[in-house]
Amino acid sequence: MPPKKKGKGKAKKGKKKKSGEGNELEEKYRRSTLDVTVLKEHLVLRRDVARQAQACSQELQTRLSTLEHKLGAEREDRRDINADLTRQYKTMQTEMGVKVHQLEIEVSKLQQQLTLCQEALQRERESGEQMVLEKDATITELQGKIDNMETDYEKILHDTLDSLLSRLAEKRLHWQDESTELQLEHKERLLDFGLNPLDI
């Protein structure tokens, strides 16, 4: 019979174990329910965080897209500006090259004209100096001729005056003789008429 007792004792122990296990199960269930609730709350929080993150991500994506669009537009504008500036620079460079070439041609022409003018001026100076020398020689020659003519004229004038004086002296003597003869004739005629020539 003792084995029966043993059996009974085991049965009692088994009931105790079952009630202890039930409590543990309930505790585990409560814990599990609590864990599930906590996990659900975590999930809700994470879902909210994920939604906020997704909203932020979409906003950032939109901003990034806008910024990329702006950046692309600015790059395009910069390319256009660079192309326009390059074109303007090349145009200005071409125009400047043309102007420089024209100015070089003009400078060359002006230098040629200056050279020709300097040569013409040199010829004119030499010609002027030659003319001055020729004029000086002519003036010297003419002055010598004038001096010779003056000497000749003086000589002719002196000879003429001497001749005139001698002729005047001869004529004077001649007229004095004639005058004396006329006076004598008139005296005689006055005396013939009975007049005294001294009274007249």
Rank of each mutant, 00 (worst) to 15 (best):
Q52A: 09
L157N: 12
E21R: 10
K145Y: 06
E185C: 07
K10D: 10
S19K: 15
L198R: 15
M92V: 13
T94I: 06
T62A: 11
L191W: 06
K16R: 03
T62G: 05
L161M: 13
V100G: 02
E185G: 04
K8W: 11
R79K: 12
L121E: 04
E126V: 08
L133R: 13
S108F: 04
E119Q: 04
R78A: 15
Y29F: 05
E21Y: 05
R63G: 01
G128I: 11
P3L: 15
A53M: 15
G194N: 03
V100I: 11
K10E: 15
K99L: 15
H174T: 12
F193Q: 09
L121K: 07
E68Q: 01
H42L: 14
S65C: 07
K99F: 05
M92K: 09
T151L: 11
T94E: 11
I105P: 00
N23C: 00
L182G: 03
R87V: 04
D35P: 02
H186F: 15
T151W: 01
G128C: 12
D48W: 00
T140Q: 02
H101M: 06
K4S: 14
G14A: 15
S108L: 07
L45T: 09
C56V: 14
R167C: 10
T66L: 09
L182R: 15
R31F: 08
K155N: 15
A50W: 05
G72H: 09
Q122P: 01
T138W: 08
K70W: 01
D152W: 05
Q93C: 00
I146T: 04
L25S: 07
D152C: 10
K109P: 01
E181T: 11
Y29L: 13
T138Q: 14
M1F: 12
R63A: 06
R51T: 08
S32F: 04
D162V: 12
Q93G: 01
K135R: 13
A120S: 13
S108E: 07
L195F: 15
Q183E: 12
E185T: 12
V38L: 06
L85M: 06
Q143S: 00
E74P: 00
L161V: 13
K15Q: 08
E24F: 11
I200R: 03
D192K: 04
E24P: 00
I156H: 10
R79C: 05
D80S: 12
Q112V: 09
Q111E: 13
L60R: 00
R63N: 04
G22I: 04
M96F: 08
R78C: 12
L110D: 06
M96D: 05
K155W: 07
A55R: 14
V49T: 08
Q61H: 05
L85A: 03
C117H: 14
Q52E: 14
Q93S: 07
A169N: 14
D199M: 02
K187Y: 07
T37E: 15
E27K: 10
I146S: 02
L165Q: 15
E76K: 03
G22R: 11
D84C: 06
V98L: 01
